[in-house]
Design a protein around this nucleic acid. Structure first.
Lengths: 142, 142
DNA sequence: TGACAAACGATAATGGTTATCGTTTAATAA
DNA sequence: TTATTAAACGATAACCATTATCGTTTGTCA
């Protein structure tokens, strides 16, 4: 991977932003230093950074809305391969224990634990138990 | 809110699916019972259900990719109003303690705690400290 | 039953993201 | 250093998820 000027500036833009920016946010900031940059270049390089592990996405579930009818508090087990979501009852996880202050004035509504990993079928164990298919390619390297 | 036949079938489709379906998934399933239903109707009613609290969305961050450069394990404080994301160091939360089995064959990669609520500015406390603006309307009733 | 608002289906428009394509730039070897 | 070649760039079209619009149908209620 060639470390071009565009890449440096894009990467620094994410580093400097303490706010988990969107590609669009990055684009706007980078244009301050490279006015001719294309939004496509930002997307391409963000994808490259994700693939090589230089950056991470905050949520595995951008791309499409996922719904739930279970309104009781509970947690989620998420497969980073197929994006499958399994529920975990609230009692299956010991209460989360905060050891520091939150941002000033923040009012907690709820606490949700996400256990992220690979499900059996994505690890190649057992039959290919098809989940609901969703989401764009995410795990494929070019 | 009138409880039309379409609404009943859509809601049951989400209830029956143990898999956190997308609107598209729901559309496909509902078409089995109401072949003439429109995808737009599914979206409209899903939105209605979200607004009235009958359904919930799994992630507050579908819609647009959010990036992070902090590759050390950490947790997130998320404002459900403006979708702002604050980081919490791993040491700020006591280790998550699992009290049950996960789905057979699931390999844990990491555990992430999400503390969801309203930030100071979304509660109307303090100056309107603008965060990076992102995401479509989500909190607004029609 | 009639009147009116709400919901529906069809479809156009929007917004985020990816793909394409011709040109420019970077890496490598001569 | 220059020539070669693949990778990266910018511009733009295409794509997919979602929302908006609009004319018609269906519920609700007087």
């Amino acid at each position: 991977m060639a470390f071009t000027f565009q890449r440096q500036v894009i990467y620094e833009a994410v580093l400097d932003s303490r706010q988990h920016p969107t590609p669009e946010n990055i684009y706007e900031q980078v244009r301050g230093r490279i006015p001719s940059i294309s939004l496509g270049t930002v997307y391409k390089n963000v994808k490259t950074f994700l693939d090589t592990g230089l950056l991470k996405e905050v949520s595995l579930h951008h791309g499409s809305l996922r719904l739930e009818a279970n309104m009781t508090p509970h947690h989620h087990v998420v497969c980073s391969g197929c994006k499958a979501i399994f529920d975990l009852e609230e009692s299956d996880v010991a209460p989360v224990e905060l050891k520091s202050r939150l941002p000033k004035g923040f009012a907690i509504a709820r606490c949700s634990v996400e256990i992220i990993g690979l499900c059996a079928s994505c690890r190649g164990i057992g039959a290919s138990n098809k989940k609901i298919s969703t989401h764009h390619s995410s795990g494929a390297r070019k």
